[in-house]
């Protein structure tokens, strides 16, 4: 079985940042592996370690800088990686549909049995890419998966899905399938020192638009960012710290101040 894991390098900001036009200043951004994807990688690598997957391929859409992030997936145990990028991609805002175009092209070439994605990306948080990809490539799918057992012989993934309101659903999904992975599915490992060493020699194949059979017009997204601003905070939240005793004391104090009487 071949597993394809999509990973994204996401931009993170600290408390202080500047907005330049419709973007956050580049100097205020730090890049890291999307948290959800870390769990997806772990799931893929464990399938390989359990002898279920023969190959785990990491796939990203990102500029050269994102190789740092994808190399972390290789250090954790993915066998090789594919990175799709093109100047034309850099020039437009990538909406879900466009991402799916790009991912679909790689899926067609790689022919995986299982695609693992994160539930969402920490930066633009659409939470749609995995499911939209499944629809496009005609795979079964399960979203927000927080438990996974794969029966390779039967070709069935037994998954637990986290739904709204604390409801959980147990489902069987026939492979080939796309699963969008929720944090908490597993405990992602640290890349081992040996893994880091080996990752330097693993392949990261880069593909531009021509390589995946698309043209710059195809990545012209339907979405544009029209403005970027920091919302005003309307009230303050207090986070009560300390042990149960202290916390209870402080809580009582706040309630009393607000006029709650026993």
């Amino acid at each position: 079985m071949k597993v394809l894991v999509t990973v994204k390098e996401v931009a993170e900001v600290g408390d202080d940042f500047a907005i330049e036009g419709t973007e956050i200043a580049e100097s205020d951004l730090e890049y890291d592996l999307n948290e959800w994807d870390d769990y997806a990688i772990e799931a893929g690598v464990r399938l390989a370690e359990d002898g279920i997957a023969d190959e785990v391929v990491a796939l990203t859409i990102g500029p050269e800088r994102s190789e740092e992030t994808i190399r972390m997936a290789l250090a954790k145990g993915a066998d090789r990686a594919v990175r799709v990028w093109d100047d034309a991609i850099a020039d437009s805002f990538l909406d879900v549909d466009t991402k799916v175009d790009l991912l679909e092209a790689v899926v067609d070439e790689e022919e995986p049995d299982l695609v693992l994605t994160g539930v969402q990306a920490a930066d633009d948080a659409f939470g749609a890419t995995g499911v939209a990809l499944a629809e496009r490539i005609g795979f079964e799918h399960a979203a927000v998966v927080n438990d996974l057992e794969l029966d390779a012989d039967a070709g069935v993934a037994n998954v637990r899905r986290e739904l709204e309101g604390g409801v959980e659903e147990l489902t069987e999904v026939d492979v080939p399938a796309v699963l969008t992975v929720q944090t908490g599915l597993n405990e992602p490992r640290y890349a081992s020192l040996r893994g880091i060493r080996q990752a330097q020699r693993k392949e990261i194949a880069t593909k531009d638009l021509a390589d995946v059979g698309l043209s710059p017009d195809d990545v012209e997204g339907a979405l544009t960012v029209t403005s970027m601003y920091e919302p005003e905070s309307e009230s303050d939240a207090e986070i009560i710290e300390g042990d149960a005793d202290e916390a209870a004391g402080r809580l009582a104090e706040v309630l009393r101040e607000k006029g709650v009487e026993a």
């Binding site: 740092e68 190399r71 020192l193 880091i196 060493r197 990752a199």
Partner: peptide, 10 residues
């Protein structure tokens, strides 16, 4: 090197 940077980060 890239490896040393990755090592430091992890």
């Amino acid at each position: 090197t890239d490896e040393q940077k990755q090592l430091r980060e992890e």
